[in-house]
Design a protein around this nucleic acid. Sequence first.
DNA 1: TTATTAATTTAGATAAGCCTAAAAATAAAA
DNA 2: TTTTATTTTTAGGCTTATCTAAATTAATAA
Lengths: 218, 218
Amino acid sequence: MFTLAEENYLKAIYHLEKDSKVGVSTNAIAVKLNTQPSSVTDMVQKLANKKALSYQKYKGSLLTKEGKKIAANVIRKHRLWEVFLVEKLKFQWDEVHEIAEQLEHIKSEELIKRLDVFLDHPDFDPHGDPIPDENGIIKPTEKKLLSELQKDQRGICVGVKESSTQFLQYLDTRNIGIGTTIKVIDKEEFDDSMTIQVGETKLHITDKIANNLYINTH
Amino acid sequence: MFTLAEENYLKAIYHLEKDSKVGVSTNAIAVKLNTQPSSVTDMVQKLANKKALSYQKYKGSLLTKEGKKIAANVIRKHRLWEVFLVEKLKFQWDEVHEIAEQLEHIKSEELIKRLDVFLDHPDFDPHGDPIPDENGIIKPTEKKLLSELQKDQRGICVGVKESSTQFLQYLDTRNIGIGTTIKVIDKEEFDDSMTIQVGETKLHITDKIANNLYINTH
DNA sequence: TTATTAATTTAGATAAGCCTAAAAATAAAA
DNA sequence: TTTTATTTTTAGGCTTATCTAAATTAATAA
């Protein structure tokens, strides 16, 4: 069993490993977690004893398979709760992080299993980040322009290419934002326009729109 | 702000106060929380400093208005989460306590406000216990036989008078159990039978059934 | 009313998770 | 390559929430 503090360290290191193949530095962890480097040294030594990571003095830390699994599971819980908060409780996508930081530490496998079912097995959280599966596997995602999607393909909006006020307003009035799931209903070869599904409503959009929306897909 | 441990002490004392108008004994708290009396002494002294309770050496503890409010709020969160777990995630009513013990300490007023709305302002938890309102007020409840309810009145099933296997099976096949909300749709003067609503379905029951079900109402 | 028992408090320790300050090791610059 | 700067670790403390053991107070029984 891992404590709340330990889980937070594992999660931080998991995120930091992505940007570097070498050991994650003690300082980097301290910055990420807003603690002192000396506190980090203490903790990584403890986590090394618990076989959650490998640590060599002055060489940094790297998660073990076990450590990665635990971290991915915490991230899974975090992101599932974020989906719950936005989809069910109608929070804005930028209001949920702090609450999910707490909820991610609730201990019950069964709870998360059922939450996942309740939310209909979402693939992405409201920020467009992928949700690891029960084994901690994150399906590789591709960031594409909406225009590159095929018919019947779906993905989640993760950003815009052009960010003019006009364009953002266009999206706003149509309830498209970060985290919105978009499905391609139909594509028109002739003018590259497409019909998409956003929530319950269908929408016809021009190629200009489709060329300026970034979509995450599996 | 109160820590998780402090909240648990306040909750325990809140429950213990009910059964005694005098100060709650240190030992009673220790038993309830499964700790040593010496630990309790430490904690109640700390909580007395924080004005959450009044404490006199060897005389026990009594919650202040402030302490009661905090305790009631924790209980409110606990019971709302229990409703969520049973109604939305389809847990059994007897599986949810442990998880709710964790969820009750999540800190966010807004979260609970929205959860309450999402659950449609439930009055009782799945065990039939009343849910305090935002101010910590518990509306006084009455335990009646179902047969005593008026037309259009609703309540929650909290127990049975007769507990024969036959009767319990009758209830089971009709999805009536502890925590089930029951609404009286119609009463027939002639034979004292009634039509009730259980979930989505309407049901016609005889006076014998109505005379053996205990219902909590406001 | 005194002796005994039970409840409660105090004193001193421990583990987790953090801190500051000083020492040691590594990396960067001259 | 030596010096300087940066990073990391060690050492020693602090707080929270526990514990055990001993001391004290209150309650009960003789």
